[in-house]
Each structure stands twice: as C-alpha cells, then as structure tokens.
Amino acid sequence: MRATLIEVAPRDGFQPIGPFIPTDDKVSFVEAAHAAGLRRIEIGSFVNPAAVPQLRDTAEVLRRTAHLEGLDAQVLVPNARGVALALEAGAQHLAYVVSASEAHNRSNVRRDVATSIRDYGEIVAGLPAGLRLRLNLATSFDCPFDGRMEEDLVLSRLDALLAHREDVEVGLCDTTGRADPDHVFSLAAKCLARFGARTRWVFHGHDTYGLGLANVAAAWRAGITGFDAAFGGLGGCPFAPGATGNVATEDVAWMFRRMGVETGVDLDALLRLATRAAALPGASPGGRVRAALADRCAAA
C-alpha cells in the first residue's frame, strides 16, 4: 500500500504569512522538502499579487527549483490570466480552483460558479498537450458563508466540470476544516463510484477543529490515495474566515507509517523542515508530531 503526499506549504502554507519570505528561503524550503522525499510540491500560485503578495515571486521559485530531479512542481491558477502567466513561466503542472459554494467562489475568484465552470472548459480546451492538470473543488464539504455543502450539489458541480475533461486529478477540499470523517468518507466514496477510474482523487484537509488526520484516514478508507498537507501545519485560506492551517505533513507521514502505508518520506528530515517552517515570522504552525518527537526535531 502506498499513499502520495503532496506538499502544499510553499503555496497554501505561505500565502497567509504577512512578512515576506525571501525568495532564497522559499527555494531552500522546496529543496529541503525534496530532500525529505517529497516529489509533488505546490510551489506557489499565479494570482493577483495585490491579493496574495506573499506569492509574487512564484515564477522565480519555479525557475530556481527546476533542477531538482523528479520534482513535480504544481502551481495554483484561478483564471485564464493565471494560466497564461504560469505557462509563460514554464509551469508544467497547473492546479485550477473552483468552489462548490457560490458565496465562496465570489469571495475567492470574484465570479459565480457557472462562469468559473465555463472558463475552466475554455481553458482546458486550449491547454498544450502533455500539460498536467489538477482541479481543486474548494468548499467540497463546508463553506464559511453557506455552511455544510449538500453532497448532491457537489456531485452536480463535478458533473459539469468533468464533462470538459475526465482524465484529471480532482482535489476534494475541506477549505474550512469543518468536515467530519463520516462526511469525508461518504462524499469520497460517492465520487469514486460515480466518476470511475479515469479521474484521480486527492483529499485536501485543514485542521481547524482537530479533525485533519481523522479526515485523511476517512478519505483513505474510501479509496483516495493522494493527500495534500503542509509541513509545520502551516496554512489557512485568506478568503475563508476562521480557517487555520493545513493538516501537517509530518502528522500524515507518521500516521501512515503506523498504518504500514508507504509514503517515501524521510520522517526525521521532514521533522527538521517542519520545525524550521514553524519558526517563520508571522507563521501560525499546527500539528502534533513535532511536539511528540521534539528530540528528533533539532535542526541539522
């Protein structure tokens, strides 16, 4: 058994931090994550720098980490302009985001869901051959404005999105961290049953209410094998009031090790990286394994 851990701290973890993290440091964090065995890393986003100033150097981080062997560097893009900038920078793996919730979609990307789905279809049709594509469905479980999302609505959003292209990776995102394991298992199982093997699935969880690991385990039980996580438990959505950090990569790696599931991650190296990230000025770290294994977290 093997689970794929997708490191999202350099994007989702860094974006809410106020003090600018120097580009050299961002590159160093990506290099350290790669050295710890993480190969899927979301290194940044091509969004309006006025909205997310922390990630205004994504193109430079992408360029300076391109030498890392086997690195699959994905970047978040919210619209056609972001896609154009990402392609200009040489990105080979895009993560496009649409919200299941109308209110969150308007808050996040300033348009209604139907327009985002139409835009996504036009973007998909124009992508270069061989480009890898990830589709993130934000607020798959809960919206900070509308509350719990009905599964039938989420499935209908996916019907419309996957009509444009089925052979993509879909991230079911617990944007607020208010999902519970029963809900995660139920929606994940329905998605896998409804859309078949051509679509690949990832669970993206936050630990706002302490259910991040339980939700990861529920998604695994339902058949999902890919998981977003952030070293140090960093993160939080600027457009989802109250949402705190992503589930910590070191916590997920430790749990899967205890379950006998391979991840390819060097836990000691990851703990050192997480400890360094947790000390970033302006960061709000999370997770539990760093404290439990404090004697193994000393910086090298």
Score class of each variant (00 low, 15 high):
277 A>C: 15
103 A>L: 09
13 G>F: 06
40 R>H: 15
52 V>H: 01
188 A>F: 00
91 A>H: 05
282 G>W: 08
261 V>C: 13
266 D>F: 04
266 D>C: 11
155 L>M: 14
71 L>E: 12
58 T>V: 08
39 R>L: 15
131 L>Y: 05
296 R>V: 05
218 A>H: 04
209 Y>T: 06
266 D>L: 05
35 A>R: 15
90 G>E: 04
82 G>F: 04
126 G>E: 05
280 L>A: 06
175 T>G: 01
33 A>K: 05
14 F>I: 14
57 D>W: 09
74 Q>S: 13
246 N>F: 11
275 T>M: 13
54 Q>M: 07
280 L>D: 11
150 E>A: 13
10 P>F: 11
201 W>C: 01
75 V>D: 03
125 A>Y: 10
241 P>K: 12
37 G>C: 13
248 A>D: 07
272 R>S: 08
220 W>M: 09
29 F>L: 07
106 R>L: 09
288 R>A: 14
199 T>Q: 08
271 L>S: 07
178 R>N: 12
7 E>F: 13
199 T>E: 11
128 P>I: 05
154 V>K: 03
162 L>G: 10
35 A>P: 10
54 Q>C: 09
170 V>S: 06
48 N>Y: 11
278 A>F: 10
141 F>C: 00
236 G>S: 07
192 L>A: 03
29 F>T: 10
248 A>V: 10
160 A>Y: 07
194 R>C: 09
144 P>R: 00
61 V>M: 03
189 A>V: 00
252 V>F: 03
203 F>V: 02
83 V>T: 11
49 P>R: 10
157 R>I: 06
103 A>K: 08
215 N>G: 01
257 R>A: 15
33 A>F: 10
16 P>D: 12
